[in-house]
Amino acid sequence: MPTDADNKRQAARDVIDILEDISKILNTNLNRTELSLCVSLIENGVNPDALAAVIKDLRKEAATVNRGQ
């Protein structure tokens, strides 16, 4: 898949564009980098459900850290 992505860099960018739009509609608060990271994770076979849980967890963590300060 990385070769795929390399070969079709433009295509990948398009995909990320589309996904970014969707994510904006859905208010996921993911930025572009995070989104592409997530895409690569999922493409590598990570369970999206689990990944969602991870992100939520990290966010919660970050929130508590922020609140703590």
Binding site: L19, S23, T28, P48, L51, A52, I55
Partner: peptide, 12 residues
Amino acid sequence: GILYLLYKLSED
């Protein structure tokens, strides 16, 4: 997968 992820996140 990615759609589902987005869905979950938005739900969150």
